[in-house]
Amino acid sequence: MTATPPDVDRVLSVAREAATAGGNVALSAFRTPLSITPKASKMDPVTQADVDAQNRVVEVIRDSFPDHTIVGEEGDQLKEIPDTGPAWVIDPIDGTNNFTHGNRVWATCIAYVEDGEPQAAITRLPALGDEYVAGDTTLRDNEPVTVSDRDDPELCTVSLTFGLQPQHRPLFAEVSRNLLEAFGDLRRFGTGQVSLAMVAAGELDGAVSAVRLSPWDTVAGVHLVRQAGGTVTDIDGNPWRWDSEGVVASNGKVHDTLLSIIP
């Protein structure tokens, strides 16, 4: 017999508890001496705080849902989202480079998915005190938010959410140039999840990665944008899923322009 999926309110309650607990672990190590180990490249670090924060998030989730799948960035957690059943997708510190530099823009991110589709998400910024949450709607610090209604690209601000890997630098440079020519302003925060949360809340009008990102870098933020009334596709304009090539998120009104700048 297939178990009945938990309701969204219960999932969100656990997600918020887990993000708070994991975020507090990370925050306790913030701006302290850190042992930093590079992963795929020198700009892809991991610290003990990443590992400890993820372990704490997993502990909280396991207390309520011991049989659910966990997909996590660090350690030996699963790295892909299963096609069926419930799963939790965790990034204990999205923006580790910011974290290691003492920059406050980093987040603890959790998404809950059923059969590969996001149902609930939280992006919590412990050092800044902001929290973005989405079940059926999107909230920022417990207040409802929606994507912006700006439709003139020259009045819009967009963010790039890729470019750390050396092999992606030429494409990053080309997309950056195209964005600067088509849009009013450009931001780079060093954390894709925070950029997506900002699109959801209307703080940005769009965010783009022209390369595939990991599920822990995207799924929570994509759900925030969708539930706030935004549009999220792959780089060809097809509906986005966790293994899509790239991610393009916007308020919907400037989406075609965003797609057009990707070579």
Rank of each mutant, 00 (worst) to 15 (best):
V133P: 00
N103P: 09
S159V: 02
L155P: 11
T138S: 06
D130R: 15
R140M: 13
Y132V: 02
G95A: 03
V158S: 11
A107S: 07
T157E: 02
H101L: 15
P126I: 01
E143F: 05
L155G: 14
V60C: 07
Y112H: 05
H101S: 13
G95I: 00
Y132M: 10
V58Y: 06
Y112C: 04
T100F: 09
I93S: 15
E131P: 00
Q77E: 12
G163R: 00
L78D: 11
S159F: 04
D63A: 15
E114I: 13
V89G: 09
E143R: 10
V60D: 04
D151W: 10
F65K: 01
K79Q: 03
T84Q: 12
N97V: 09
P66C: 09
H68I: 03
E73Q: 04
A127R: 04
A87D: 14
P118T: 06
N103H: 10
P126C: 03
N103R: 12
D152N: 15
N97D: 07
E117A: 11
V60G: 11
P126Y: 07
P82M: 09
E73I: 00
Y112R: 08
G72W: 02
T69G: 04
V57F: 08
T84L: 12
D149L: 13
R104T: 08
I70Y: 05
L125Y: 08
G102M: 06
W88S: 02
G102V: 03
G135T: 01
L125H: 09
R104Q: 12
R150N: 09
P86G: 13
L155Q: 15
G85N: 13
D152F: 10
A120L: 06
A134M: 09
I61N: 02
F99G: 00
V60N: 08
N97E: 06
G95P: 01
P82C: 06
V105P: 02
E59H: 02
T84Y: 10
A134G: 07
C109D: 04
T69R: 11
I70W: 01
R104K: 15
R150W: 12
I90F: 05
T123N: 09
G85I: 07
I122S: 06
L128G: 11
D141E: 01
W88Y: 08
C156N: 05
D152C: 08
T146Q: 11
T138R: 11
V71E: 02
L125Q: 15
E114Q: 14
L128Q: 11
Y132F: 14
R140L: 13
R140C: 12
P86A: 13
T138G: 07
R104P: 14
L128M: 14
N103E: 09
A111P: 00
A134P: 05
N142V: 12
D94W: 01
G163S: 02
E117Y: 13
V57I: 15
E143S: 12
R140H: 15
P92T: 00
D136S: 11
F162G: 00
